[in-house]
């Protein structure tokens, strides 16, 4: 008899997974970070409490905390080793980060949400 886990897993469609970027969670008291391109990664947007604070319109009343999600997208095909190099470069530039989340596409569909 297959286990329930085996039955459930058998229903899952196999999808092609591709690394396309990384979300960095950065702690800073100096306001919205600014980034030049780092290796093969370009900053696409920065959000605070889920609200996009760069680029585009930001309400002057927007409450912000010291924790920013910074989305970096790859500008070419990348591997896990490129993420390691990126994290090393970011740390050397003095950024303090709490977490990194790799961004993958699944059969070409993003496996990550956009910011509001």
């Amino acid at each position: 008899m297959p286990t329930f886990t085996e039955i459930a897993k058998a229903t899952k469609k196999k999808r092609e997974i591709k690394l396309v970027g990384v979300d960095m969670y950065i702690i800073t008291e100096k306001g919205t970070p600014k980034f030049d391109d780092i290796g093969a990664f370009k900053c696409e947007f920065i959000s605070n409490r889920g609200t996009k604070v760069w680029p585009g319109f930001v309400s002057p009343d927007l409450l912000q905390v010291n924790w920013y999600r910074c989305r970096f997208m790859a500008t070419k095909d990348v591997q896990d080793a490129d993420i390691n190099a990126f994290l090393d470069a970011l740390t050397k530039k003095g950024w303090w980060w709490s977490a990194a989340q790799k961004l993958w596409t699944y059969d070409g569909e993003p496996g990550f949400s956009k910011a509001y």
Binding site: K9, K12, R15, I17, D23, S47, R49, G50, T51, L63, V65, W67, R69, Q101, L103, W104, Y106, G111, F112, S113, K114, A115, Y116
Partner: peptide, 28 residues
């Protein structure tokens, strides 16, 4: 109205696991 699971931070963290961050802040 602006935080919690509505912070729009969701990821497929593996091909069989989805994750949504629940963000609660002291100022909010």
């Amino acid at each position: 109205n602006t935080e919690d699971s509505y912070a729009a931070i969701e990821h497929m963290v593996s091909d069989e696991v989805a994750q949504c961050l629940k963000v609660i802040t002291w100022p909010g």
